[in-house]
Structure formats: structure tokens, C-alpha cells
Amino acid sequence: MWLSNSSVGRKVVMSVTGVALILFLTFHMAMNLVSLFSAEGYNMVCEFLGANWYALAATVILAALFVIHIIYAFWLTMQNRQARGNERYAVTDRPKTVEWASQNMLVLGLIVIVGLGLHLFHFWSKMQLPELMHNMGASVDPMTLSYAADGVFHIENTFASVANVVLYLVWLGALWFHLTHGFWSAMQTLGWNNKVWLNRWKCISNIYTSIVVACFALVIIVFFIKSLI
């Protein structure tokens, strides 16, 4: 199978899953923005994306994308370290055109995973998971269940804490670096690039990533300020 036994194939898997995850982030960000305008509207979205078959199917696909992306990341990194040889350079210097993020994608990715764990704990484990467990017949605390679709309640709860706000912003920072490289790099790997598009893709990735990350951050900051008032 060329997607696993050729270097370009493995990179294609990284690109396709990566681009799919960027699309997911875009939808997620758009839904978060709803919470700024209408608490009711946001809770309707939460209700809609509860433990329904379509939301669960999407969750499974999403989880699969993450897992594939992460497994391939470690696999590629291991192969690449091997290809580098046993001896490291004593002196190294990064040329100006080499982005820092491009050489630290695995580390940035690890920060993103840790943030993701935190995020699942804060939201998913209190929203979709209890509903799912309830539907499957497990006993769930009725208080938890009654708040399961109240997304705004969970947002307010999480971002009233300064520590959470800081952690989430650090997470978003890592995500920004990860995506600014990942986006154009995916296009390059898929072969959709030339001398003109190289700079265009880099520009598009910077702008697109900045918008997505800024909108996520906006929701966090607005709810933090609201909690102070």
C-alpha cells in the first residue's frame, strides 16, 4: 500500500488528515462564535451535537483522524531520526527562510494533544459522554445530565478560572504555530504548489490560521471578562 510504504504516501496521509482537522477546527470555531451572540442559539447547537447517531458518527471519524495523524507523526519522526544517522552535528544554525515551527512540529503537536486532553475533560466528558453513557444504560448523575446540553454553562464555568484561560491561550498559541506550517506544507505535499503559489499558500495559511485562532481566543477572553463583571 503506497500510503504506508512510500515516503510521499505517508506524507499524503499526514496532509489529508491535517487538512480535515483544519476544516473541523473551522466548524468548531464558527459554532463557538455563536455563544457570543446568543446563549440560546449555542445551547441549541450543543443539543444538536449531543449523543445523536450523526454526531457520534462524526465524533468517531474525528477521533480516527486524530489517531491516524498522531500515529503517522510518531512513525515519520522515528524514521526521520533514523535517516539522520547516529551522529549529531556539533554546530547547527537555522537559515532565515526556515520557520521555527517547521522543525518543531512534533513538539507543537504534543502541546496540542495535552491541550486537547484538558479540553475533552472540561467539555466533552461533561456533555456528550454523560448523554452517551445514559443512552447506553449506565447510571449517570442526574445533575450532570441536566447540564449536558447547556454549553454556555460549561463555558462560563471553565473560563471563570484564570488558570484555565492561560492554559487555553498557550494551547491556542501552539496550535497557531502548528497550523501556520501545517497548512501550506499539506498543499506542498499534495503537489499543489509552484513558484507563485508557494508564497500565496504561506500567506493564506498565516491569515487563515490567525483568524481561526483569534476567534477561539476571543470567545475565551470575552467569557473571562464577563465572569469578572
Binding site: S7, P95, T97, S102, Q103
Partner: peptide
């Protein structure tokens, strides 16, 4: 040519652009 490159133990490109710079 790509299969030969993989077979000889060279790594996977991650688009850092260090090659082009040097």
C-alpha cells in the same frame, strides 16, 4: 527514483525548506 530513495534509507520530507536555503 522515489522508491529507490526510500529504499536507501533517506528520510521523509517535512517541508522545512532547509535544503533550498542551503
Amino acid at each position: 527514483m522515489l522508491s529507490k530513495m526510500d529504499e536507501l534509507g533517506f528520510g521523509n520530507c517535512t517541508n522545512t525548506r532547509a535544503c533550498e536555503a542551503e
